[in-house]
């Protein structure tokens, strides 16, 4: 392909509507996480949170292909996944504060955001916990012929859990409509993936399960959109699972108070470079004239307001009633 052709194809990848949606969601997640950091530090939210700022492109580029019938399973770093899958900022933020108006009535917290009505089967406090659950959702979709695809988000650290291998194998032999999306931010807490993982690339693991595996730039939302899109299409067509490794970085530490001494100076500055995912997308849309600066700053402003309202909603909402301690343990007992 000639350069001009590539550029044209590049420009056609995203519809105007998708472009706006992607930009909006990425900024929504970023601003939400910034509010979470603020709220966690000043005590208006819960005592901890693992924020996903820096990794927005993976959640958004992936969920851009999913409808409400599709499922995701998420992780302890799951705010972005929840937002990208259509979660309501007010109820998400209220959950973070443990309020009755939260998406789990305040019983779950940051580690356990879930909204089944939107196909979000839930964030998980157990590393790797969502992977077999995604297989289960895939099995339902397959047996009921619902056409739904399940995306299992997981971190690089989770790829050394036994369940990761078991889930990939099972999904492969049963040709489940599941896409395994790895957010490789290079660290599992304070442990470097280069040390913890024997494979050169996490996507190399796919070969052992005879499924497609790809490693892509997870800071490039367009690349995520294209590559994960193909895997989702494949799954929807009954051709089985894929493993996509998205290389990215977290702007914060593991949690909010992590001094990150394991990162090099260069890594600590990554969010100031062109690799920062929102900046990267901005230059893409500008280059291809998909969104103007004015449109983007209007979106930014409206999100600023929405997120601030969400934080106020969380702060002003009541705590759950004491009797809620005992409800929801069983359906009937």
């Amino acid at each position: 392909m000639s350069n001009t052709q590539t550029q044209q194809t590049q420009a056609n990848i995203l519809s105007a509507e998708k472009t706006r949606w992607i930009y909006r969601k990425m900024v929504e997640i970023r601003k939400f996480e910034e509010a979470v950091i603020k709220g966690t530090r000043n005590g208006s939210l819960g005592p901890f949170a693992h924020t996903s700022d820096g990794q927005e492109a993976v959640a958004v580029g992936t969920c851009a292909h999913l409808n409400e019938k599709d499922y995701i399973t998420s992780t302890h770093r799951g705010h972005g996944h929840s937002i990208a899958k259509g979660g309501d900022l007010n109820t998400l933020m209220a959950e973070m504060a443990g309020k009755a108006t939260g998406c789990d009535k305040g019983k779950g917290g940051s580690l356990h955001l879930a909204d089944l009505t939107k196909g979000n089967i839930g964030a998980n406090g157990v590393v790797g916990g969502g992977l077999p659950i995604a297989c289960g959702a895939g099995l339902t979709a397959k047996l009921t012929k619902s056409g739904a695809v399940t995306v299992a988000f997981f971190g690089d650290g989770a790829n050394n859990q036994g369940v990761f291998h078991e889930a990939l194998n099972l999904a492969a032999i049963w040709k489940l409509p599941v896409v395994f999306v790895c957010e490789n931010n290079k660290y599992g807490e304070y442990t470097w993936n280069g040390y913890a993982t024997a494979a050169t690339k996490i996507s190399d693991r796919a070969a052992g399960y005879n499924i497609p595996g790809k490693t892509i730039n997870g800071n490039d939302v367009v690349e995520v959109y294209q590559t994960v899109g193909e895997a989702i299409e494949r799954a929807r067509n009954g051709e089985g699972p894929s493993l996509i490794e998205c290389e990215t970085f977290r702007i914060q530490g593991h949690g909010i108070s992590d001094p990150q001494i394991y990162k090099t100076e260069e890594e600590k500055q990554l969010h100031l470079t062109d690799e920062e995912c929102i900046k990267k997308f901005k230059s893409y849309v500008t280059k291809h004239q998909l969104l103007s600066d004015k449109e983007m700053s209007e979106i930014d402003q409206s999100i600023e307001d929405t997120v601030e309202k969400a934080l106020q909603f969380a702060i002003n909402s009541p705590y759950p009633d004491a009797k809620e301690l005992y409800t929801d343990v069983y359906v009937s007992y």
Binding site: G46, G98, K99, D104, G106, K107, G108, G109, L111, H112, Y319, P320, A322, E324, L325, Y326, V329
Partner: peptide
């Protein structure tokens, strides 16, 4: 503790 999982919300956790 009661026969329930541990709730996140602070007042519920205090009760737990």
């Amino acid at each position: 503790a009661p026969h329930t999982p541990v709730p996140f919300s602070k007042p519920l956790e205090d009760l737990y």
